[in-house]
Amino acid sequence: MNYVEHIGKYFIMLKQVFRKPQKWSVFRETLFREIEDLGLKSLGIIAFISFFVGGVVAIQTALNVDSPLIPKHLIGFATKRSMILEFAPTFMCVILAGKVGSYITSSIGTMRVTEQIDALEVMGINSLNYLVLPKIIAAVFFYPLLVLMAMFLGIYGGYLAGVLTDLFHSEDYIYGIQLEFNPFFIQYALIKTFVFAFVIATIPAYHGYFVKGGSLEVGRASTQAVVWTSIVIILLNYFLTQMLLS
């Protein structure tokens, strides 16, 4: 199949996904399970990575601006900006694409090859709606929260890095992060996250749902899914940035 066919099939899939759930009580239950599997279980890794990324960004900036003409509060300012604009939304979503994407593809793919999806269909259940919609909702509502947390922890990580290394003063850093606060940047980051979350839930679902063969193919599909999800996130990031910021 060529790319155009895949893209077409992807959108046809989405049409099946966006139906009214057949039973709200069942939907609610699966939604909570997905929030746990896709969201809460990624809390630790996102906290860990964003904290250290923030630290590294602050240290790097400090090491690279040793000219006395550049004010020291630039370090805090740069860390804040890069965490909010790129590291928290884009970088964290690429991480999630790897972690959650492979999980989604392998769990749906396993259901496909072990005929669990057929079993759903035989019962008269819209399997795409049942399996994918809760994942989309869980990701789209939870990942913005994860990204907000990542922003906060990244900036905090930068602060702690300064305190621990003595490379810059914490007053300068705090002054820097308060400088030129622009709420639109947070909005921009959240809009991106919203879109990325949708991609993270749906592209891996597509790869898993249409897998053919056995466990080997499921593994292969997972790799493919992560690669494509990341590529699409990076491309969309480019276009969204151009659209929203320029």
Partner: peptide, 11 residues
Amino acid sequence: MVFQGGALYDS
């Protein structure tokens, strides 16, 4: 329907 491998929902 009883599937060949059972197709029980493993979660």
